[in-house]
Amino acid sequence: MDATDHSRSAGRRVLGSLGYRTLRAAAVSFWVMVIAFGLIRLAPGDPVLARLGAEAEPAAIERLRRQLRLDVDPVTQFVEYFLALLKGDLGVSIENGRRVSDIIATSLPVTLWVIAVTVVLGLCMAVPLAAWVATARHSSVPYIFRAVTSVFLAIPAFFTALIALIVLGVHYGVAPIIGYKPDFPENLYYVWLPALVICTHLVPVLSRVLYSSIKETMAEEFVETGVVRGVGRLRFYWYYLLRPSLAPSIVLLSYMVGVMVGATVIIETIFSLPGIGRALVGAVIGRDYPVVQGCVLLFGLAVVAINLVGDVLASWLDPRLELR
């Protein structure tokens, strides 16, 4: 086999798979959009009634319905929505008349900050923890590790969040109870505690997966080669233990981040953060069709994009994994 051709075709394969994945992402987004559009209309309730109230005059209701183009049949509504979307127009909120893109632009960064801080914090805790447990000399360390992580997993996040608010926010006053400032780095003050609360679930899952990957790696023969060569300590940890073990954890992390985008709703509600999760909940309650559609579409795109990033990162960490 010719080696140069091999690496060249490998490069072509990566590009090809990126193209394929982009197409797939577009298809997924389209179906997410269709489902979001359909589901919210299937749910009982009426956006016009939600805005005007049950005692509104029928004439006023009829007027608003016509103004919002809710009087035409759903298929026409969808085609109009889709055509607008292709031009980048996500529509206008029924509830308050704000543009959906503006609502997303102000609330999405809050959620992204929470998630970014969670991921950084989670990795900073899970990676050293897993490496330490996997290389610990004392045989009781893995047992204690498993027991403690089980306890953390068993406690619901909202409960932890409330306790954390009461203890750290109210009693010690080291974290804010309410509010948010959008500018970096002040926003970190509002984000660190929610992130830490999510980490009480993220770190146990991540460190367990990583722990067993490292254990598997340690049983492999090349690790002995590293020991025999007398590779420096840090180099050994990175090239011989962590990097060959991290790929499954990174794929898992990207999946969990995808889930988190939706699951931050609870955390955002408890910590009163004006993030996209809260925007979505508000919109669903008010049957604010355009906002719901916009947010759900965004979630879909985010999940697809994050999984792609995770896969690319995993295949960079471990060249054995080829992008598919």
Partner: peptide
């Protein structure tokens, strides 16, 4: 001594090299 005066050849050719380097 290890690796310098005494070299070591691993059992399995397939698993003996570091996959990420």
């Amino acid at each position: 001594i290890r690796g310098k005066k005494i070299g070591y050849i691993t059992q399995s050719a397939l698993a003996g090299l570091n996959p990420v380097m």
